[in-house]
Design a protein around this nucleic acid. Structure first.
Lengths: 136, 136
DNA sequence: CTTGACCTTACCATGATGGGAAGGTCTATC
DNA sequence: GATAGACCTTCCCATCATGGTAAGGTCAAG
């Protein structure tokens, strides 16, 4: 299987497969006489694992740890759960930040009449000129 | 006012002030005879505007547009509101994605006993091996 | 044999920020 | 004055994960 076929089979672009190899996330595959990378079912399985992990927002580093645990037959699932739990916390922190931004912005948009008058509470807020934005 | 003082006064690092100048977000300030950048109250005001905008998650590009509107006395607030509304949508999309990740992860963590047994539903999910076929 | 699809490596770009080196300048203290 | 240390300057590099492109090699079908 060539890299393009492995890419199609795994959903990971050829570009990223080479990158993952370069940074040591996956092992270099064998090569044909003409230096083409050759992949088999196992490699595709690993690539799919990586793709799923990335889709769930795990970083490459976290993915690397999960991959090692996956390939370690004697692993304890507690480690895996710790990584996942930590990641959940990080995601929730990020969500809270974004929600805070959205809350502020919605308030500002609500206060903005959005017509042709130059007055604009959104800009006033950004500028820090505390011209009281009258609330809902 | 030197760049360090402008940084302290605005909350934007000196490094970023130079960067903003380099990419054309802010105008090059005047210089002393010894080539030091010189800032005044107006510049600090602009920098604070930028900082607030970035804090609210606007990109540099969006910030640039908002800044232009802020400095345009004849602007219509509708444009500003459109930018803000678009940004809210983008943030909400991002939040939904993150929440979806969190939901999946919480479910997996909940299913994971987290003890020393090698069996782990989190890894099974990542691998796509849906239970019965154990041992990859 | 040619064409086109594929592969290889290598370099550059992103977005926003930080780090650091090498060298010049200012200010306070001795 | 001299000197120390805090500041400034430009320039380069690193991040993180991904995409693009270019120059060149390989393969399969017509």
């Amino acid at each position: 299987m060539n890299i393009g076929q492995a890419a199609d089979a795994s959903g990971v672009s050829a570009k990223m497969i080479r990158y993952y190899e370069q940074i040591g996330l996956i092992r270099p595959p064998s090569r044909t006489g003409s230096n083409y990378r050759v992949y088999g079912g196992d490699e595709v399985h690993v690539l799919r694992f990586i793709r799923r992990s990335r889709t769930l927002g795990f970083s490459i580093e976290e993915t690397s740890a999960l991959l090692a645990l996956w390939q370690d037959k004697t692993r304890a699932s507690g480690e895996v759960r710790d990584i996942a739990s930590g990641h959940i916390s990080a995601l929730e922190t990020k969500i809270a930040e974004l929600e805070s931004m959205v809350g502020t912005l919605k308030h500002l948009v609500h206060c903005c009449h959005g017509d042709n008058r130059p007055d604009c509470p959104i800009l006033d807020d950004l500028a820090g000129t505390h011209s009281k934005t009258k609330g809902h």
